[in-house]
Computed example of a mutant assay.
Amino acid sequence: MIENFKKDVDSEVQMYAELALEKMNYSFEQLKEDVYNGERISLAFQDKLYHVIEESNQWHLADYETDTQQSFDSADELLEKSRMYRKSLQEGWSHIKKAY
């Protein structure tokens, strides 16, 4: 389906194909880069939405559905110590997808 969208004559349809591929191929290394650049990142895991945000010199992994938040003093600490269902982000990465 994505290959068909990439070949479509409509540039907006082609753009959707590129966005889908970007989400599907979002790597842990790209997450690290985005975190270090201070970007707000939305991640999907087991039908839940999580947000990685930096606020007031603290890094947070937030689950707004359950109103829980893990907070850390640095981006490195967040990447190393944050957990989704008892797994680190890196350990569970094959099941985590970029949401937006």
Rank of each mutant, 00 (worst) to 15 (best):
I2W: 00
N4L: 15
K6F: 08
D8S: 15
D10L: 12
S11N: 03
S11M: 06
E12G: 08
E12C: 11
V13L: 10
Q14D: 00
Y16D: 08
A17R: 10
A17T: 10
E18T: 12
E18W: 05
L19W: 05
L19T: 06
A20Y: 02
A20R: 04
A20K: 02
E22Q: 05
M24A: 13
Y26V: 02
Y26R: 01
S27T: 15
F28Y: 15
F28I: 07
E29S: 05
E29P: 01
L31M: 11
L31H: 10
L31G: 07
K32Y: 04
K32D: 05
E33Q: 10
Y36R: 12
N37Y: 06
N37V: 08
G38C: 04
E39Y: 00
E39W: 04
R40P: 00
R40C: 04
S42G: 07
L43N: 08
L43D: 03
A44M: 01
F45V: 07
Q46V: 05
D47Y: 14
D47G: 11
Y50R: 00
Y50T: 05
Y50L: 12
V52C: 13
N57E: 15
W59F: 15
W59D: 02
H60S: 06
H60N: 07
L61F: 10
A62G: 00
D63F: 01
E65W: 11
E65S: 13
T66N: 14
T66C: 11
D67A: 08
T68M: 04
Q70D: 07
S71V: 09
A75G: 05
D76F: 11
D76H: 11
D76C: 11
D76K: 09
L79R: 07
E80I: 02
R83T: 06
R86T: 03
R86H: 00
K87I: 09
Q90W: 00
Q90Y: 08
Q90I: 10
E91C: 06
E91P: 03
G92S: 15
G92P: 13
G92W: 12
W93Q: 13
H95L: 13
I96Y: 09
K97N: 12
K98T: 05
A99I: 05
A99R: 01
